[in-house]
């Protein structure tokens, strides 16, 4: 399993670009409305094998940390929502999924490979970027650490 992580010091954490995007199974979602939560932003696609491998872990993490303030948001890079709806049901995805586009990809520095996950603190700042499939225990540890900070 290969992954790349880019981390920076607290003073350098950039604000995550805000967006309002259509949800696959619900109303539009605005990222900034989740300020106060720790957010895991996952860029993925239904046909992406390493993305699929990560999703059951994300479902577990969402359940485990929901009460403490974790919100996972999936950004599907599929060409349409058609395969995403049945996929989300099959995998019992318990967090919102929005349909991504090239503009949002560019705002996040270019999503030119999948999966890519961004971890945001309660102020909406990007603290970590994981490129490629990342072990669940890495996310678990990083999320737990961020949730402790108010």
């Amino acid at each position: 399993m290969r992954s790349g992580t880019q981390a920076s010091g607290p003073k350098q954490h950039p604000l995550a670009p805000d967006f309002t995007l259509a949800q696959v199974n619900g109303p539009s979602l605005t990222l900034s409305s989740y300020r106060g939560h720790v957010v895991l932003l996952d860029f993925w696609a239904t046909w992406c094998v390493p993305c699929r491998e990560e999703i059951p872990h994300f479902v577990e993490l969402q359940d485990k940390f929901r009460a403490q303030g974790l919100q996972i948001i999936g950004v599907s890079m599929d060409d349409s929502a058609d395969p995403v709806r049945p996929f989300s049901q099959q995998f019992h995805m318990n967090y919102p999924i929005v349909m991504g586009n090239a503009k949002i990809g560019e705002q996040y520095g270019g999503v030119l490979g999948l999966p890519i996950a961004f971890l945001l603190d309660r102020d909406g700042r990007i603290t970590k970027k994981h490129i490629g499939a990342t072990p669940a225990e890495v996310f678990d540890k990083e999320i737990a650490t961020l949730l402790l900070k108010q």
Partner: peptide
């Protein structure tokens, strides 16, 4: 691959 990826680069 994906159209979203193609559109970006």
């Amino acid at each position: 691959g994906s159209h979203v990826l193609y559109t970006q680069a």
